Amino acid sequence: MICLIIDDEPLARQEMQAMISIIPEIHIAGTFSNAPAAMDFLQNNKVDLIFLDIEMPLVSGLEFAAQIPKEILTIFTTAYSQYAAKSYELDAIDYLLKPIGKDRLEKAIRKAKLYKSMLSNDTEKNQVEGTTDNFLLIKADRKFHRVNFEDILYIEGLKDYVVIYTKRQKLITAMNLRTIHQRIPHQLFLRVSKSYLVNQSHIDSFDHHTIYIGDTEIPLGEVYKKEFFQVYSAGSVNPDNV
């Protein structure tokens, strides 16, 4: 993947460049201190992914993200949490809060690589063909596959696709998160952020910000936090005390 780093803070650009440079299969094509300079670069150069600060002079990161071609993926890198909801309206792949750790950065890049592979013509575009009270019917490889709801750990939304994580496999399906949520049991699957549905029967633990399913950490969004605690704990846990 070819990427850019856009941040008005020199030290932040240097730190991102150092961390990204050691990650395989990703090449930094340029670093920029402002969005207009990056936009000039995009006129004549191919880019797959942009690491984008938000509060910058001239043009903000949010304004810039709204102007770039949709096929360019965006990961916001910022010290401010209040722009998260807006970032997902712009179909950002991820939202990283500074200081950014190596593991968190690598997770965001894996997500970007996964979405890029979904757009490839070589990737099988699975379809949900039907639902019952107990399972999804997914068409893939010219076959119909039964996916029991009880086997689904969580579902991740990536723009116009969802990734269904089960105990045994990972299924990429051409459907957005809102649509698949309408077709599966709400009493079992909880919307916990803009990007995730979780099967509450597989939740191992949680705190005020994160849900843990096995080794996977799933963010608990502010908008969904109250409903999560009400449904999952049947009102027995006060989120302000967690």
Rank of each mutant, 00 (worst) to 15 (best):
Q182T: 10
Q182R: 12
Q182P: 08
R183M: 13
R183V: 08
R183K: 12
R183S: 11
I184G: 04
P185K: 02
P185C: 01
P185I: 03
P185T: 08
P185G: 07
P185R: 03
H186Y: 14
H186F: 11
H186A: 13
H186M: 10
H186I: 10
H186T: 14
Q187I: 07
Q187A: 14
L188A: 08
L188W: 06
F189V: 04
F189W: 01
F189Q: 00
L190G: 00
L190H: 03
L190C: 02
L190I: 07
L190A: 03
L190Y: 07
L190Q: 06
R191W: 02
R191Q: 09
V192T: 05
V192R: 00
V192C: 00
S193E: 05
S193L: 06
K194F: 12
K194G: 10
K194T: 11
K194M: 10
K194V: 05
K194A: 07
S195V: 06
S195R: 07
Y196P: 00
Y196V: 04
L197I: 06
L197V: 05
V198G: 00
V198R: 02
V198T: 04
N199K: 08
N199H: 06
N199I: 03
N199C: 05
N199F: 01
Q200V: 09
Q200I: 12
S201T: 15
S201G: 06
S201V: 12
I203H: 06
I203K: 02
I203A: 06
D204S: 13
D204E: 11
D204A: 10
D204H: 14
D204V: 09
S205F: 13
S205P: 07
S205I: 09
S205H: 14
S205R: 15
F206K: 08
F206G: 05
F206E: 05
F206L: 13
F206P: 01
F206V: 04
D207F: 04
D207S: 12
D207H: 08
D207N: 12
D207E: 03
D207A: 08
H208Q: 15
H209W: 14
H209S: 15
H209L: 11
H209M: 13
T210L: 08
T210M: 12
T210G: 09
I211Q: 02
I211K: 03
I211V: 09
I211H: 01
I211D: 00
I211M: 03
Y212N: 13
Y212I: 13
Y212M: 13
Y212V: 11
Y212G: 07
